[in-house]
Design a binder for these strands. Structure first.
Lengths: 157, 157
DNA sequence: TTCTGTTATATTGTTCGCAACTTAATTGAA
DNA sequence: TTCAATTAAGTTGCGAACAATATAACAGAA
Protein backbone atom coordinates (compact mmCIF):
# COMPACT_ATOMS: atom_id res chain seq x y z
CA UNK A 1 0.00 0.00 0.00
CA UNK A 2 1.30 3.39 -0.97
CA UNK A 3 -0.38 5.21 1.95
CA UNK A 4 -1.84 4.58 5.35
CA UNK A 5 -5.35 3.17 5.10
CA UNK A 6 -6.11 4.21 8.64
CA UNK A 7 -5.77 7.91 7.78
CA UNK A 8 -9.14 9.56 7.88
CA UNK A 9 -8.29 11.61 4.80
CA UNK A 10 -7.83 8.43 2.78
CA UNK A 11 -11.08 6.83 3.77
CA UNK A 12 -13.72 6.53 1.10
CA UNK A 13 -16.24 5.59 3.76
CA UNK A 14 -15.75 8.73 5.75
CA UNK A 15 -16.57 10.65 2.57
CA UNK A 16 -19.88 8.82 2.25
CA UNK A 17 -20.61 9.42 5.91
CA UNK A 18 -19.79 13.14 5.76
CA UNK A 19 -21.58 13.61 2.45
CA UNK A 20 -24.74 11.96 3.70
CA UNK A 21 -24.92 14.34 6.64
CA UNK A 22 -24.16 17.39 4.52
CA UNK A 23 -26.94 16.30 2.19
CA UNK A 24 -29.39 15.97 5.07
CA UNK A 25 -28.35 19.45 6.18
CA UNK A 26 -29.33 20.71 2.72
CA UNK A 27 -32.75 19.06 3.00
CA UNK A 28 -33.44 20.22 6.55
CA UNK A 29 -34.50 23.83 5.92
CA UNK A 30 -36.69 22.73 2.99
CA UNK A 31 -38.32 19.92 4.94
CA UNK A 32 -38.72 22.03 8.09
CA UNK A 33 -41.02 24.12 5.98
CA UNK A 34 -43.27 21.06 5.55
CA UNK A 35 -42.79 19.90 9.13
CA UNK A 36 -41.09 16.69 7.95
CA UNK A 37 -37.85 14.84 8.57
CA UNK A 38 -36.01 13.18 5.67
CA UNK A 39 -37.17 9.71 6.70
CA UNK A 40 -40.75 10.94 6.86
CA UNK A 41 -40.32 12.64 3.48
CA UNK A 42 -39.20 9.50 1.67
CA UNK A 43 -42.00 7.55 3.32
CA UNK A 44 -44.44 10.05 1.86
CA UNK A 45 -42.62 9.90 -1.50
CA UNK A 46 -43.41 6.21 -1.60
CA UNK A 47 -47.04 6.81 -0.65
CA UNK A 48 -47.47 9.65 -3.15
CA UNK A 49 -46.33 7.20 -5.80
CA UNK A 50 -48.32 4.17 -4.66
CA UNK A 51 -51.20 5.73 -2.69
CA UNK A 52 -51.09 2.94 -0.09
CA UNK A 53 -48.66 0.38 1.25
CA UNK A 54 -48.23 -2.13 4.03
CA UNK A 55 -45.67 -1.49 6.75
CA UNK A 56 -43.52 -4.30 5.43
CA UNK A 57 -43.62 -2.86 1.92
CA UNK A 58 -42.38 0.48 3.23
CA UNK A 59 -39.61 -1.18 5.24
CA UNK A 60 -38.42 -3.05 2.15
CA UNK A 61 -38.65 -0.07 -0.19
CA UNK A 62 -36.77 2.26 2.15
CA UNK A 63 -34.47 -0.41 3.66
CA UNK A 64 -35.61 0.45 7.16
CA UNK A 65 -36.66 -1.99 9.85
CA UNK A 66 -39.89 -1.95 11.81
CA UNK A 67 -38.13 -0.46 14.81
CA UNK A 68 -37.62 2.68 12.76
CA UNK A 69 -40.77 2.55 10.69
CA UNK A 70 -43.38 1.90 13.39
CA UNK A 71 -42.70 5.02 15.48
CA UNK A 72 -42.19 7.09 12.33
CA UNK A 73 -45.62 6.07 11.06
CA UNK A 74 -47.08 6.81 14.46
CA UNK A 75 -45.77 10.37 14.16
CA UNK A 76 -47.08 10.77 10.60
CA UNK A 77 -50.41 9.52 11.88
CA UNK A 78 -50.55 12.02 14.73
CA UNK A 79 -49.72 14.72 12.17
CA UNK A 80 -52.86 13.50 10.31
CA UNK A 81 -50.88 12.81 7.13
CA UNK A 82 -51.61 9.08 7.07
CA UNK A 83 -54.03 6.52 8.48
CA UNK A 84 -53.26 2.97 9.56
CA UNK A 85 -55.54 0.01 9.85
CA UNK A 86 -55.15 -3.74 9.93
CA UNK A 87 -56.30 -5.74 6.93
CA UNK A 88 -59.47 -7.80 7.53
CA UNK A 89 -58.01 -10.56 5.35
CA UNK A 90 -54.90 -10.77 7.55
CA UNK A 91 -55.03 -9.05 10.91
CA UNK A 92 -51.23 -9.13 11.21
CA UNK A 93 -50.79 -6.77 8.28
CA UNK A 94 -51.15 -3.01 8.67
CA UNK A 95 -52.06 -0.94 5.66
CA UNK A 96 -50.94 2.68 5.48
CA UNK A 97 -53.07 5.20 3.57
CA UNK A 98 -52.61 8.88 2.80
CA UNK A 99 -55.17 11.25 4.25
CA UNK A 100 -56.41 14.17 2.20
CA UNK A 101 -53.92 16.34 4.08
CA UNK A 102 -51.11 13.90 3.33
CA UNK A 103 -52.00 13.83 -0.36
CA UNK A 104 -52.17 17.63 -0.47
CA UNK A 105 -48.65 17.94 0.93
CA UNK A 106 -47.22 16.63 -2.34
CA UNK A 107 -47.87 20.00 -3.97
CA UNK A 108 -45.67 21.69 -1.39
CA UNK A 109 -42.91 19.15 -1.99
CA UNK A 110 -42.58 19.37 -5.76
CA UNK A 111 -39.92 22.08 -5.61
CA UNK A 112 -37.62 20.13 -3.30
CA UNK A 113 -35.82 17.81 -5.76
CA UNK A 114 -34.89 20.67 -8.06
CA UNK A 115 -33.72 22.75 -5.16
CA UNK A 116 -31.50 19.95 -3.86
CA UNK A 117 -30.12 19.23 -7.32
CA UNK A 118 -28.88 22.81 -7.38
CA UNK A 119 -27.00 22.25 -4.13
CA UNK A 120 -25.63 18.92 -5.19
CA UNK A 121 -24.42 19.44 -8.73
CA UNK A 122 -21.98 21.88 -10.21
CA UNK A 123 -23.34 25.20 -11.37
CA UNK A 124 -22.01 24.40 -14.83
CA UNK A 125 -25.27 23.62 -16.62
CA UNK A 126 -23.72 21.58 -19.42
CA UNK A 127 -21.97 19.31 -16.95
CA UNK A 128 -25.00 18.55 -14.84
CA UNK A 129 -26.64 15.85 -16.88
CA UNK A 130 -23.44 13.94 -17.41
CA UNK A 131 -22.38 14.24 -13.79
CA UNK A 132 -25.78 13.18 -12.52
CA UNK A 133 -25.78 10.06 -14.68
CA UNK A 134 -22.22 9.12 -13.71
CA UNK A 135 -22.84 9.59 -10.02
CA UNK A 136 -26.06 7.62 -10.17
CA UNK A 137 -24.31 4.80 -11.99
CA UNK A 138 -21.47 4.66 -9.46
CA UNK A 139 -23.76 4.79 -6.47
CA UNK A 140 -25.95 2.02 -7.87
CA UNK A 141 -22.94 -0.17 -8.59
CA UNK A 142 -21.45 0.42 -5.19
CA UNK A 143 -24.72 -0.23 -3.38
CA UNK A 144 -25.22 -3.45 -5.33
CA UNK A 145 -21.70 -4.58 -4.51
CA UNK A 146 -22.26 -3.90 -0.81
CA UNK A 147 -25.52 -5.81 -0.76
CA UNK A 148 -23.96 -8.70 -2.64
CA UNK A 149 -21.10 -8.96 -0.16
CA UNK A 150 -23.45 -8.74 2.79
CA UNK A 151 -25.58 -11.59 1.51
CA UNK A 152 -22.52 -13.72 0.84
CA UNK A 153 -21.25 -13.14 4.36
CA UNK A 154 -24.62 -13.77 5.95
CA UNK A 155 -24.89 -17.01 4.00
CA UNK A 156 -21.36 -18.10 4.80
CA UNK A 157 -21.75 -17.41 8.49
CA UNK B 1 -38.14 17.06 -17.24
CA UNK B 2 -38.32 13.67 -18.82
CA UNK B 3 -39.33 11.85 -15.63
CA UNK B 4 -40.90 12.48 -12.27
CA UNK B 5 -38.42 13.91 -9.83
CA UNK B 6 -40.58 12.87 -6.91
CA UNK B 7 -40.15 9.19 -7.74
CA UNK B 8 -37.97 7.54 -5.13
CA UNK B 9 -36.21 5.51 -7.80
CA UNK B 10 -35.02 8.70 -9.51
CA UNK B 11 -33.61 10.31 -6.41
CA UNK B 12 -29.86 10.62 -6.22
CA UNK B 13 -30.19 11.56 -2.56
CA UNK B 14 -32.00 8.40 -1.62
CA UNK B 15 -29.07 6.50 -3.11
CA UNK B 16 -26.64 8.33 -0.84
CA UNK B 17 -28.91 7.73 2.12
CA UNK B 18 -29.34 4.02 1.43
CA UNK B 19 -25.67 3.55 0.58
CA UNK B 20 -24.52 5.20 3.79
CA UNK B 21 -26.60 2.82 5.86
CA UNK B 22 -25.54 -0.24 3.89
CA UNK B 23 -21.95 0.85 4.45
CA UNK B 24 -22.49 1.18 8.19
CA UNK B 25 -24.03 -2.29 8.15
CA UNK B 26 -20.79 -3.55 6.58
CA UNK B 27 -18.74 -1.93 9.33
CA UNK B 28 -20.93 -3.09 12.20
CA UNK B 29 -19.77 -6.70 12.56
CA UNK B 30 -16.13 -5.63 12.27
CA UNK B 31 -16.49 -2.84 14.80
CA UNK B 32 -18.59 -4.94 17.18
CA UNK B 33 -15.50 -7.04 17.50
CA UNK B 34 -13.67 -4.00 18.90
CA UNK B 35 -16.67 -2.82 20.91
CA UNK B 36 -16.90 0.38 18.86
CA UNK B 37 -19.51 2.23 16.85
CA UNK B 38 -18.56 3.92 13.57
CA UNK B 39 -18.56 7.38 15.14
CA UNK B 40 -16.31 6.14 17.92
CA UNK B 41 -14.07 4.45 15.37
CA UNK B 42 -13.45 7.59 13.32
CA UNK B 43 -12.82 9.54 16.52
CA UNK B 44 -10.11 7.04 17.37
CA UNK B 45 -8.81 7.18 13.77
CA UNK B 46 -8.20 10.88 14.30
CA UNK B 47 -6.49 10.26 17.65
CA UNK B 48 -4.35 7.40 16.31
CA UNK B 49 -3.12 9.84 13.70
CA UNK B 50 -2.65 12.89 15.96
CA UNK B 51 -2.22 11.31 19.40
CA UNK B 52 -4.21 14.12 21.04
CA UNK B 53 -6.84 16.69 20.12
CA UNK B 54 -9.20 19.21 21.65
CA UNK B 55 -12.92 18.56 21.56
CA UNK B 56 -13.35 21.40 19.08
CA UNK B 57 -10.68 19.94 16.80
CA UNK B 58 -12.48 16.60 16.75
CA UNK B 59 -15.81 18.29 16.02
CA UNK B 60 -14.30 20.16 13.09
CA UNK B 61 -12.40 17.18 11.69
CA UNK B 62 -15.40 14.84 11.85
CA UNK B 63 -18.07 17.51 11.12
CA UNK B 64 -19.92 16.65 14.31
CA UNK B 65 -21.21 19.08 16.88
CA UNK B 66 -20.57 19.05 20.60
CA UNK B 67 -23.98 17.58 21.25
CA UNK B 68 -22.78 14.43 19.52
CA UNK B 69 -19.13 14.54 20.51
CA UNK B 70 -19.43 15.17 24.25
CA UNK B 71 -21.45 12.08 25.12
CA UNK B 72 -19.45 10.00 22.64
CA UNK B 73 -16.21 11.00 24.38
CA UNK B 74 -17.78 10.26 27.73
CA UNK B 75 -18.44 6.70 26.54
CA UNK B 76 -14.92 6.29 25.14
CA UNK B 77 -13.63 7.52 28.50
CA UNK B 78 -15.68 5.02 30.49
CA UNK B 79 -14.32 2.33 28.15
CA UNK B 80 -10.86 3.54 29.28
CA UNK B 81 -9.78 4.23 25.69
CA UNK B 82 -9.24 7.98 26.19
CA UNK B 83 -8.69 10.54 28.93
CA UNK B 84 -9.98 14.10 29.09
CA UNK B 85 -8.64 17.06 30.99
CA UNK B 86 -8.96 20.81 30.75
CA UNK B 87 -5.96 22.82 29.59
CA UNK B 88 -4.29 24.87 32.33
CA UNK B 89 -3.65 27.63 29.77
CA UNK B 90 -7.37 27.88 28.94
CA UNK B 91 -9.76 26.17 31.28
CA UNK B 92 -12.53 26.24 28.67
CA UNK B 93 -10.66 23.86 26.40
CA UNK B 94 -10.71 20.09 26.93
CA UNK B 95 -7.87 18.01 25.59
CA UNK B 96 -8.48 14.39 24.64
CA UNK B 97 -5.66 11.86 24.95
CA UNK B 98 -5.39 8.17 24.09
CA UNK B 99 -4.78 5.80 26.96
CA UNK B 100 -2.43 2.86 26.53
CA UNK B 101 -5.49 0.70 25.91
CA UNK B 102 -6.77 3.17 23.30
CA UNK B 103 -3.44 3.22 21.52
CA UNK B 104 -3.25 -0.57 21.57
CA UNK B 105 -6.63 -0.86 19.88
CA UNK B 106 -5.13 0.46 16.63
CA UNK B 107 -3.50 -2.92 16.04
CA UNK B 108 -6.87 -4.61 16.10
CA UNK B 109 -8.25 -2.06 13.64
CA UNK B 110 -5.67 -2.27 10.89
CA UNK B 111 -7.53 -4.98 9.00
CA UNK B 112 -10.79 -3.02 8.81
CA UNK B 113 -10.14 -0.68 5.83
CA UNK B 114 -9.02 -3.54 3.62
CA UNK B 115 -11.98 -5.62 4.66
CA UNK B 116 -14.41 -2.82 3.86
CA UNK B 117 -12.73 -2.08 0.53
CA UNK B 118 -13.51 -5.68 -0.44
CA UNK B 119 -17.19 -5.10 0.32
CA UNK B 120 -17.29 -1.77 -1.43
CA UNK B 121 -15.46 -2.31 -4.68
CA UNK B 122 -15.98 -4.76 -7.46
CA UNK B 123 -14.21 -8.07 -7.23
CA UNK B 124 -12.49 -7.27 -10.51
CA UNK B 125 -9.00 -6.51 -9.23
CA UNK B 126 -7.92 -4.46 -12.25
CA UNK B 127 -10.91 -2.17 -11.93
CA UNK B 128 -10.47 -1.43 -8.24
CA UNK B 129 -7.84 1.29 -8.37
CA UNK B 130 -9.58 3.19 -11.12
CA UNK B 131 -12.99 2.90 -9.51
CA UNK B 132 -11.70 3.95 -6.13
CA UNK B 133 -10.08 7.08 -7.57
CA UNK B 134 -13.15 8.03 -9.60
CA UNK B 135 -15.51 7.55 -6.70
CA UNK B 136 -13.28 9.52 -4.38
CA UNK B 137 -13.05 12.34 -6.89
CA UNK B 138 -16.82 12.49 -7.37
CA UNK B 139 -17.56 12.37 -3.66
CA UNK B 140 -15.06 15.13 -2.95
CA UNK B 141 -16.50 17.32 -5.68
CA UNK B 142 -20.06 16.74 -4.56
CA UNK B 143 -19.22 17.38 -0.91
CA UNK B 144 -17.44 20.61 -1.82
CA UNK B 145 -20.39 21.74 -3.92
CA UNK B 146 -22.80 21.05 -1.06
CA UNK B 147 -20.67 22.97 1.41
CA UNK B 148 -20.29 25.87 -1.00
CA UNK B 149 -24.06 26.13 -1.51
CA UNK B 150 -24.71 25.90 2.21
CA UNK B 151 -22.34 28.76 2.92
CA UNK B 152 -23.87 30.88 0.19
CA UNK B 153 -27.35 30.29 1.56
CA UNK B 154 -26.30 30.92 5.14
CA UNK B 155 -24.70 34.18 4.04
CA UNK B 156 -27.67 35.23 1.93
CA UNK B 157 -30.13 34.53 4.73
C1' DT C 1 -58.36 -29.87 16.30
C1' DT C 2 -54.14 -28.90 18.48
C1' DC C 3 -49.58 -27.78 18.61
C1' DT C 4 -45.48 -25.86 16.42
C1' DG C 5 -43.28 -22.77 13.62
C1' DT C 6 -43.53 -18.68 10.90
C1' DT C 7 -44.91 -14.03 9.71
C1' DA C 8 -46.20 -8.96 10.53
C1' DT C 9 -45.87 -5.42 13.40
C1' DA C 10 -44.80 -3.12 17.74
C1' DT C 11 -41.88 -2.14 21.84
C1' DT C 12 -37.56 -1.49 24.51
C1' DG C 13 -33.06 0.11 25.04
C1' DT C 14 -28.76 2.12 23.19
C1' DT C 15 -26.23 5.38 20.31
C1' DC C 16 -26.11 8.91 16.99
C1' DG C 17 -27.12 13.59 15.12
C1' DC C 18 -28.59 18.06 15.73
C1' DA C 19 -31.04 22.33 17.50
C1' DA C 20 -31.45 25.02 21.39
C1' DC C 21 -29.87 26.19 25.66
C1' DT C 22 -26.61 26.37 29.80
C1' DT C 23 -22.31 27.07 32.18
C1' DA C 24 -17.98 28.74 32.77
C1' DA C 25 -13.77 30.95 31.14
C1' DT C 26 -11.67 34.41 28.32
C1' DT C 27 -11.44 38.71 25.65
C1' DG C 28 -11.90 43.33 24.74
C1' DA C 29 -13.93 47.85 24.78
C1' DA C 30 -15.23 51.73 27.64
C1' DT D 1 -10.98 47.77 36.11
C1' DT D 2 -15.43 46.48 34.89
C1' DC D 3 -18.78 44.47 32.31
C1' DA D 4 -20.73 43.01 27.92
C1' DA D 5 -19.65 39.90 24.11
C1' DT D 6 -17.46 35.84 22.66
C1' DT D 7 -15.75 31.17 22.95
C1' DA D 8 -15.49 26.06 24.49
C1' DA D 9 -17.76 22.42 26.13
C1' DG D 10 -21.63 20.20 28.17
C1' DT D 11 -26.76 19.30 28.67
C1' DT D 12 -31.54 18.55 27.16
C1' DG D 13 -34.88 16.99 24.14
C1' DC D 14 -36.42 14.83 19.97
C1' DG D 15 -36.25 11.90 15.92
C1' DA D 16 -33.75 8.50 13.58
C1' DA D 17 -31.52 3.71 13.19
C1' DC D 18 -31.03 -0.79 14.76
C1' DA D 19 -30.61 -5.10 17.79
C1' DA D 20 -33.25 -7.80 20.60
C1' DT D 21 -37.46 -9.00 22.22
C1' DA D 22 -42.57 -9.25 22.57
C1' DT D 23 -47.22 -9.95 20.83
C1' DA D 24 -50.53 -11.52 18.04
C1' DA D 25 -52.24 -13.79 13.90
C1' DC D 26 -51.73 -17.15 10.50
C1' DA D 27 -50.17 -21.78 8.29
C1' DG D 28 -49.25 -26.45 8.30
C1' DA D 29 -48.35 -31.04 10.20
C1' DA D 30 -49.74 -34.64 13.29
Amino acid sequence: MAYDQLLLSNQLCFRFYALERELMAAYRPLLDHLGLTYAQYITLLYLWEHEKATVGELCTALSLDTGTMSPLLKRLESAKLIERHRLPSDERTVEVLLTKKGRALEQKAVSIPGNIATCLLSSDRDEQGKKYAELREMLDQTLEQLKRTRKEREAGK
